[in-house]
Design a protein around this nucleic acid. Structure first.
Length: 477
RNA sequence: GGCGGCAUAGCCAAGCGGCUAAGGCAGAGGAUUGCAAAUCCUUCAUUCCCCGGUUCGAGUCCGGGUGCCGCCUCCA
């Protein structure tokens, strides 16, 4: 299967071929740990985690690196506000990140390097740049001289002279070029610092990603991903400093996801509309949140609002019902050999086709909305096949459906098996009692029993194959 | 000022020149059911912001217009 990815470097959808066989070197810019992550951060992490899982599903070995920026201005500011050390702030919010990530079903990367644990690597990289003449120093800071890197702007399609005109940066000091950026910041009183050939100081923001990416993934990455707002200057600067140092292409495919808005407004502190993952999880099932995120193509902007979350929650409910149908029939077939049919190649073919279409959609620039569309059709098809009135089923088909569900779960993590709820002996007895009452046409008793079952948190459904029941979880799951 | 993106049904959202414009949510009607729940079926854009053009053929390409958004400054 050919995988095609929209590459920000070329602005076209290119066929994806890793540098080395089936090995994929993937880097995603992780969070700056000064606060809880918000839904905008979550979009990046959920999306590219799923993308990584997709690559693995189709046979790639992915080395996935996602960093923690654990030293920077925002962390220092936060530490001052809280009256603790920057390190404490970082440690705390790394812990909070793990909690949110786990709750959202985001798997851990192969490596989660921290900036503060890679200062020597950054210093070495800066030294190399200095050696090659790409740096200059002003007032204790070491700056990268973009004019020495002719390809500067190739990612963001910006030209240096245009940048000059648009730039309205608070100038702390005179840079040679407004686009020049800090590699090493001289320490100010009260700030954390590390020793370096240029004196006490700390790394600039951009250098950490280059240093850590190259340490774990080598000098040329297959894929580098992040939010579209990182295109300039962050990723542009990463390219400049990395390629200036190595003389090799830093990244082959740059992937960028679109913005998240809340109720059609940009998230910002001043609007006070930042939604943290922590908050969202109080109201919505994590799988519903994932579904909402996957419902829009990653490159397009997505607007988060109640309508979207409600629609996703509804879709999740439908998935649960499908799983109930599936599990119920599977159980009935396993219990009773007379319900088996040998093979149904036409039905099997359909299931296989859905699976192929699903994977092909994802192979085409990770088109999750399309894939979800295929899955919706699969559920309708499946429910039709699983109608109790059918009477007989093929175990082969049921196994194929299960296999497909496995793929969807491994890649997108949206199959709510766990939410289905365990069976309960007490309820089982009540359900059987009610069955008996129904056979005797004692509907008053049957309805009373249903109420008792409901009081225990379960809903009973009558089917031609007998009653079944499940834990009732309410609208939000 | 420079650069980039988007405009598809009530809402969300695929569509990458060629069968009847995916899918979801919401809505309507029906089947099924002792009742219910779930499910299934049918229905829901003669049309893809507007105007030109290219083409045998365009939502899809080109030009122009209108509207919205983002970046150029910390930001996922």
């Amino acid at each position: 299967m050919e995988i095609r990815l929209f590459n920000t470097l070329t602005l076209t959808k290119d066929g994806f071929v890793p540098v080395e066989g089936s090995k994929v070197r993937l880097y995603v810019c992780g969070p700056t740990v000064y606060d809880f992550i918000h839904i905008g951060n979550a979009r990046v992490f959920v999306l590219f985690d799923a993308f990584r899982r997709f690559l693995e599903e189709v046979g790639f070995q992915v080395i996935f690196v996602q960093n923690f920026t654990d030293i920077d201005d925002k962390i220092i500011r936060r530490a001052q506000e809280l009256g603790v050390s920057p390190k404490e702030v970082a440690e705390r919010y790394i812990e909070e990140y793990w909690r949110d990530a786990e709750a959202l079903g985001i798997k851990r990367a192969t490596v989660h390097p921290r900036a503060t644990e890679h200062i020597p690597e950054m210093i070495a990289l800066i030294a190399k740049l200095e050696e090659k003449g790409f740096t200059y120093s002003v007032e204790g800071d070491i700056l990268f001289d973009v004019s020495r890197f002719p390809e500067y702007g190739k990612l963001s399609k910006k030209k240096l002279d245009e940048l000059q005109e648009g730039a309205r940066v608070e100038v702390r000091y005179e840079k040679r070029n407004p686009a020049d950026f800090v590699l090493w910041k001289g320490a100010k009183p009260g700030e954390p610092f590390w020793e370096s050939p240029w004196g006490k100081g700390r790394p600039g923001w951009h250098i950490e990603c280059s240093a850590m990416a190259m340490k774990y993934l080598g000098e040329t990455l297959d894929i580098h991903a992040g939010g579209i707002d990182l295109v300039f200057p962050h990723h542009e600067n990463e390219i400049a400093q990395s390629e200036a140092a190595t003389g090799k292409p830093f990244v082959r495919y740059f992937l960028h996801n679109g913005y998240v808005t809340i109720n059609a407004e940009k998230m910002s502190k001043s609007l006070g509309n930042i939604i943290t993952v922590r908050e969202l999880l109080k109201q919505y099932n994590p799988k519903a949140i994932r579904l909402a995120l996957f419902g829009t193509h990653y490159r397009n902007p997505i607007n988060i609002d109640v309508e979207l979350l409600e629609a996703s929650s509804q879709f999740l409910e439908r998935m649960k019902n499908f799983l109930r149908n599936f599990a119920f029939i599977r159980k009935k077939v396993a219990e009773n050999p007379s319900r088996k049919v040998e093979s149904e190649s036409d039905v099997l073919g359909e299931v296989v086709r859905f699976q192929q279409l699903f994977l092909e959609a994802l192979a085409d620039d990770f088109n999750t909305p399309q894939a979800l569309g295929v899955f919706g059709e699969f559920m309708r098809f499946g429910n039709r096949y699983l109608l109790p009135s059918r009477g007989k089923w093929s175990e082969e088909v049921l196994a194929a459906m299960d296999a497909f569900l496995g793929i969807v779960e491994r890649v997108l993590g949206i199959i709510p098996w766990a939410e289905l709820g365990a069976e309960d002996r007490e309820v089982q007895a009540l359900v059987e009692e009610r069955e008996k009452a129904r056979k005797e046409k004692n509907f008053a008793l049957a309805d009373a029993l249903r109420e008792r079952i409901r009081a225990l948190g379960y809903v009973v459904e009558d089917t031609p194959l007998g009653a079944r029941f499940f834990r009732h979880e309410g609208r939000e799951g």
